[in-house]
Amino acid sequence: MSIWEYANPKKFMQTSAWLLPWAVGLTVLCLGIGLIWGFFFTPDDYKQGATVKIIYIHVPAAMMAINVWVMMLVTSLIWIVRRHHVSALAAKAAAPIGLTFTLIALVTGAFWGQPMWGTWWAWDPRLTSFLVLCLFYLGYIALWQAVENPDTAADLTGVLCVVGSVFAMLSRYAVNFWNQGLHQGASLSMDAKENVSDVFWLPLLICIAGFVLLFIALVLMRTRTEIRTRRAQALMARERLA
C-alpha cells in the first residue's frame, strides 16, 4: 500500500476520524502540562521578570506560523504534481490557522515588547518579516475566497503559494539587510550559547509539541469540513442538472 492511499478522500475521512480524538487529547495534555508548568512552576527571569512567561505562547506560535506555510507549500506542490484533491483542501484548511498563529505571535510579541523594549512595535527584521508573512496569508486566503470553481482556485492558489514562498524568503533576506534589529536571537537552537536557560527549556519544548498537535487537530478538522463542503456542492450541482 502506498502513502498516496491516504490522499483518497474516503480513506482520508476514515483515517482522520480515527486520528482526530487522539490528536485532540494529546493537544490538551501537552498544552495543559506545558502551560501550567511554564506559568506556575518556573522562576521569573532575573532581568525580564514574569513577562518572560509569554515565551510559552509566543515562540511556539511563531514557529508554527512559518511551519504552516511550509506545510501549505508541500501540499500545494502535491496538488500541482499529483492532483490529489485532499492535498489542495488541506492547504486551504491550513491557511487561516497559519494566519491565526501569525497574529498570535505578533500580538504576544507586542505585549512582551512593551515592557522589555518600551514599545509595542518596532520595525525590527523579525517583526517586519512576520507582518509580511501575515500579508502573504491574507492574499492566499483572499484568492481562495474569490475564485468560484474549486479546481481553478486550487491551481491558482497553488501557483501563488510556490511563487509567494520564493518571495517570502527574499523578503526575509531583504528585511534583514534593511535593519539589524532589537529582537533576541533564536530561543532554541543547537548552538548552546544562544539557547534560553535550562529551567525554561523543557516546558517550552512541551508547549511547542502542544502547538504542533493543536495544528494537526485543527487542520484535520478543517480538512474534513472542506471535503464535506465539496461533497455537498457536488451533490447540489448534480441536483440542478438532473
Binding site: 475564485v147 491558482l156 501557483v159 518571495f167 517570502a168 528585511v175
Partner: peptide, 27 residues
C-alpha cells in the same frame, strides 16, 4: 494573470501583489 476573469479583481490584485513587491521596494 492570477486575477484575470474575476469580477472584482482590482482590490484582490493589490493584496496579492503588494507583499511580492517588498524585496524590490527595500533594495
Amino acid at each position: 494573470a492570477l486575477t484575470v476573469g474575476l469580477k472584482r479583481g482590482g482590490l484582490l490584485l493589490s493584496l496579492l501583489v503588494l507583499p511580492l513587491y517588498v524585496p524590490t521596494l527595500i533594495f
